[in-house]
Amino acid sequence: MKDWVGVGEAYSASYAALCAGTLPALRDALGDARGRSLVDVGAGDGTLAAAWASEGWSVTACEPEPSMRAASHRRHPEIGVVAGGLPELPFADASFDVAAANFVLNHVASPRSSAAELRRVSRGAVVATTWTLSPSWLWAEITQRSGIPPFAGERLPADEDFERTADGFERMLRQAGLQRLAVSEVEWVWPARPEALWRSVEGGVAGAGALYAGLDERGRQRFRAAFEAVVDERSVGGVLLLEHRAAVAVSAAL
């Protein structure tokens, strides 16, 4: 598991745009808003919550990390943000027409109980996503080039973890009690600006940020040099065209 404390601004300046890449698939899965209510669980800096609201949803954002809530308040003051997170949400049963969790179940300590909690607060659909090809592939290459041992983050115990594939995601959700499931895989290319990627590293975001934070000055120089080498080799028109994939799951109302 990764520590997200204090990374709200760095996340908002970098990976928020990447994680919004699932929005077209989520939009297609849910259809027109028609004034329905939606809770965005693990809403981060509010990027998706604001997008949902602009399309006519009545949106409540729910986010446990104060720096993420602060980033959301600054960027999207029109979106109400509730302090709270999985596996216990501060809402009554069947409070919303839809419960959404974009790249959240892959970060919680108990994915199955968290998925069941999404089902509890929704009287309609549950939509959730997880990475099947995450940003870690890029940082793994950079780490290898730098000669630095890879980041060894905390892993879920075997009885809590799930296979990071569309089929594995579906199995986990069914074990959590979600029914009438449709799971698909989507892929997209994120045109990442190098300065945004480096902001995520210096800001402590995700595994690469945690790795960098633990390096001494010489290690940081080596990591930065490897990053610059990859940027020089891969950038097209000043951006890196990075491929990503995600499993998108929709559980319809019973």
Rank of each mutant, 00 (worst) to 15 (best):
D3P: 05
D3V: 09
W4A: 04
V7S: 07
E9G: 05
A10E: 05
A16V: 09
A17T: 13
A17N: 04
A17E: 14
L18T: 08
C19F: 05
A20E: 14
G21R: 07
T22Y: 02
A25N: 03
A25E: 08
L26P: 13
A29S: 04
L30S: 02
L30R: 03
D32T: 14
R34I: 00
G35Q: 02
S37L: 00
L38Y: 04
V39Q: 07
D40S: 04
D45P: 14
D45K: 07
G46W: 06
G46T: 08
T47E: 14
A51N: 04
A51Q: 11
W52D: 06
S54E: 11
S54M: 00
E55D: 15
G56L: 01
G56M: 01
W57G: 00
W57Y: 09
E65M: 00
S67D: 10
S67H: 06
M68L: 09
M68W: 11
A71I: 12
A71Q: 07
A71H: 05
R74W: 05
R75V: 03
A83G: 09
L86N: 02
P87M: 07
F91V: 01
A92I: 02
S95C: 10
F96K: 07
D97R: 14
D97S: 11
V98H: 03
F103S: 10
F103D: 13
F103Q: 11
N106W: 00
A116G: 14
R119K: 14
R120D: 06
V121D: 06
R123I: 11
R123T: 06
A125H: 07
V127M: 01
A128T: 11
T129M: 00
P135M: 09
P135D: 12
W137Q: 14
W137R: 15
W137F: 14
A140C: 12
A140V: 13
R145Y: 10
S146W: 08
P149Q: 01
A152E: 15
G153Q: 10
R155Q: 15
D159V: 11
D161N: 12
F162I: 04
T165F: 02
A166W: 07
A166K: 15
D167C: 01
F169W: 02
F169D: 05
E170T: 09
L173H: 05
G177S: 11
Q179I: 12
Q179P: 04
A182P: 01
V183K: 02
E185D: 08
V186C: 10
V189T: 15
W190L: 11
A192G: 01
A192V: 05
P194M: 03
A196T: 06
W198L: 03
R199D: 08
V201L: 05
V201G: 11
G207I: 02
A208M: 07
L211Y: 02
Y212S: 11
G214E: 07
L215P: 10
D216P: 11
Q221H: 12
R224T: 07
A225L: 04
E228I: 09
R234T: 03
V236H: 13
G237V: 08
G237P: 03
G238R: 10
V239R: 15
L241F: 01
L242E: 02
E243W: 12
V248N: 05
V250P: 00
A253D: 04
L254Y: 13
